[in-house]
């Protein structure tokens, strides 16, 4: 079937089976590789994108069901002025990641957190990221990166 999908501010005409999860549309149809396949059942968070600003597990939601809702992937994550989002700079500054496969999912989850909680406590960061899995043990660096970005966004 053919449907329209609003990704990173652009409307795309998509031709895919109606049950195709958003993840495969992003990766295979639109060439956006930031959302990554981890488990296919919404347990790990590697595929997290934002839908209308809210974290969404793109591996379990059919793209055709999104309708008018906007999708933002890490590639489309920008600061207020259109420059690279402070979270991306903060993750690099903290060297927050080892294999970094899970990181875009972390960044997107954190972006949603900072939108509604500009100065999160460490416990709030932990709670927001608790369903995003990291196997390399970069957790503390990820938390520091989010704190650094929060500092920049809401000093």
């Amino acid at each position: 079937m053919t449907f329209t999908l609003d990704v990173n501010g652009t409307k795309h005409a998509i031709d895919a089976d109606d049950d195709t999860p958003l993840l495969y549309v992003l990766r295979d149809e639109l060439g956006l590789h930031g959302a990554r396949y981890g488990c296919g059942v919404g347990q790990c968070g590697a595929c997290t994108v934002l839908s209308n600003g809210t974290p969404l597990r793109s591996c379990v939601v059919p793209a055709s069901t999104l309708g008018e809702r906007t999708v933002t992937t890490v590639e489309g994550l920008r600061g207020e002025d259109g420059s690279p989002h402070p979270l991306l700079r903060a993750f690099i500054a903290e060297q927050a990641g080892q294999c970094a496969y899970c990181i875009p999912g972390m960044v997107m989850t954190a972006a949603a957190l900072l939108k509604h909680t500009p100065r999160p406590t460490e416990a709030q960061i932990h709670a927001a990221l608790d369903a995003n899995l990291c196997r390399c043990g970069s957790h503390n660096r990820i938390v520091r990166a989010i704190q650094r970005a929060a500092e920049e966004l809401a000093p």
């Binding site: 990766r27 295979d28 060439g31 956006l32 590789h33 930031g34 959302a35 990554r36 396949y37 992937t73 890490v74 590639e75 690279p84 991306l88 993750f91 690099i92 060297q95 927050a96 990641g97 294999c99 970094a100 496969y101 990181i103 875009p104 960044v107």
Partner: peptide
């Protein structure tokens, strides 16, 4: 790391 963090194609999973 910058490419992997910002979602650039970097992994074999991304190779197309």
């Amino acid at each position: 790391l910058p490419g992997k963090i910002s979602g650039e194609p970097a992994f074999v999973q991304d190779y197309r």
